[in-house]
Amino acid sequence: MSEAPRLSPHARLRHDAARGQWVLLAPERVLVLDETSHAILALLDGTRDVAAIAAQLAAEYDAPAEEIAADVAAVLDDLRAQGLVRP
């Protein structure tokens, strides 16, 4: 099993009630999350690996697991490059 990704300690996921959206907060950064990104980040708990996250989302959204896995990997790679997700 590959290592389970988690949010970096300085990144905080929260609902922004004033604007009706989910955001990921970091120093000097407010990342507005679309539905897909939020669904992925909400599952980061340090125990699920990418495959487990994709499987869960595939079941929830009734979509092919391979497609979802590619989306999950892309979102996490992007956030990793920004230092918001580890490892």
Partner: peptide, 12 residues
């Protein structure tokens, strides 16, 4: 002030 700021929509 902190509570009012959060209610107003301040994030950071």
């Amino acid at each position: 002030v902190m509570r009012e700021a959060a209610a107003l929509g301040v994030l950071q």
